[in-house]
Every structure is written in C-alpha cells, then in structure tokens.
Design a protein around this nucleic acid. Structure first.
Lengths: 135, 135
DNA sequence: CGGCATCCGGAACGATACTG
DNA sequence: CAGTATCGTTCCGGATGCCG
C-alpha cells in the first residue's frame, strides 16, 4: 500500500481521507465505532433480530439509544429495516451486504480484544501503579 | 436488566462477552472505536509520532483530547509512550504489538468504508429522501 | 410491539491560558 | 515541546410518558 504519509495524494488516490476533519467517512466511522453501533452490528451479525430482542441482546442499552443507533446505521446503509404490517407490529433488522462485511472486521476486533484481555488488564494494572492509582 | 439471577463470574472460565454490560472489554472498545482513539491508532500505524506531530496529523483534534486519548490508549496497552529527557522535551508515541494488531483491523475497516463510500452516500441520500429530508 | 417527544443531569468536548 | 488547568458549551444518554 502506497501510504503517502504527508505528501500530496498520488493522482487517482482515494479522496476519502479519515485524517481530514471534513471527511464524511468520520461520521460513519463514529456511528459504527460508537458505544452502541458496534454492539448492534455485532448482535445482528449473529442473526437478524427484532427491536426488543436486539435491546435484550445488547445489555445496558436504552430503547432510545438503540432506536437512534439503528436509524443511523440504516442511513449509512449498514442495516436493513424490514417492517411487517401486523398487530402487534413486527419489525426486523438485518445487516446489508456492506454491513456484513463491516461486521466481519468488527468481530475480528472484538475477538482480538477478548483474546488479549489478560494482557490488557495487566497493562492497566501496571499503568495505574505507575501513576499512583489514578482512575 | 441482565438476569434476575446474579451469577458471580468464575474467572477461570471467564469469557469476555461484549454483550454483557459489565464486561470491561466494552470500555477498551470504546477507547479504540471512539472519535479520536481510532484516528490516533490509525495515525500511529503509519509511523511513530511525537505529540504535536500527532495532533497535526489528526486534523481537528485539540491538544487536550489528544492527550486524554493517548493516556487511555496507553493504559489499555495499545500505545507505548517513550520519553526522552532533553530540552526541548521529546516524547514519542508508538503502537505496541497488540496495538499494531488492532490497527490492522482498523485499517481494514477504514479501507472498506472508503471503498464503499459511494454506496454509503447513495444509501444516505435515499434514506433522507424517504424521510423527507431529515438531518 | 415498536417507536417518538420531552426533560434533565452529567459527561464529553473545545478554546484559552499557563507551566516545566 | 509536551502537556495540565480551568471554564463554558454542547451533546450524550437515561427516565418517563404517549401514540400507532
């Protein structure tokens, strides 16, 4: 990968540069990387879910936040919202093809963190000790 | 919220589960996935950088936020902080081996988003139209 | 069941100023 | 250069209540 570090982009290079503060990709990244976006995508990766099932799967989330999160993800084309006209209402959420690709990387990231959780805990303990018990 | 039955986590068989609201992995995930954590890691992936260089690379960040972000990442064992006693001060940040692994997945994610940026824009446009020009 | 509207407290954030 | 301190603002997020 020709990572032109601080030189002008080679012609034909990607316009979307996350390091640029005006890059719209940042917004999408934040939606995915944010507290709930990540978990919603990860949960939907296992299987399509209905709204309340999703809330239950992601423990700790409020309905409001889940709703907000899903709207953003739907807008970004990561999630598809399927409404089934009925009483009681039946709405199912599932990943789009793009969302599924994203979820793959996310799952890998989560797996990596879980695998190295001991190392992380150790690093935190050491840091806290050096800093004289900060947070 | 979790379950009526409160089970003590047997640390021996501990499986870090991000879906559990008490799972400490979530915090780390948020540090990495958050607005600035992601960008800091991505920037350091290219090469080790000094504090101000890092601030410059990640456009839009304030010194305060960068400092905070780096401290969290250092505490999580993603970033190593190397201090060189001198005048003027010289502090260099670089990824740890774990941080580098993480950065790989992050870079893949960023690349995926940039590649599909057109699709994302299209999805957003369509969504906005359906919703009657929302945000 | 699947939302949306409203309120409100606190955390996150940014700009600025200051220190070693 | 590499941060910390302080302050004002913004926005996140939870609780509650209502509607289709």
């Amino acid at each position: 990968m020709t990572s032109g570090i601080d030189e002008p982009a080679p012609d034909g290079a990607l316009v979307a540069d996350v390091f640029d503060k005006d890059c719209p990709s940042r917004k999408t990244m934040e939606h995915i990387g944010g507290k709930w976006g990540l978990l919603a995508v990860a949960a939907l990766r296992e299987r399509p879910l209905r709204f309340n099932a999703l809330c239950r799967r992601v423990s700790g989330v409020s309905e409001k936040m889940m709703s907000q999160t899903l709207q953003r993800l739907e807008r970004d084309g990561m999630v598809h919202r399927e409404v089934r006209q009925a009483i009681p209402p039946h709405v199912e959420y599932e990943l789009t093809p793009l969302g599924r690709k994203v979820s793959g990387h996310l799952a890998a990231l989560i797996g990596l963190l879980e695998d190295n959780f001991d190392a992380i805990k150790a690093a935190q303990a050491e840091y806290d000790e050096r800093s004289g018990e900060g947070r």
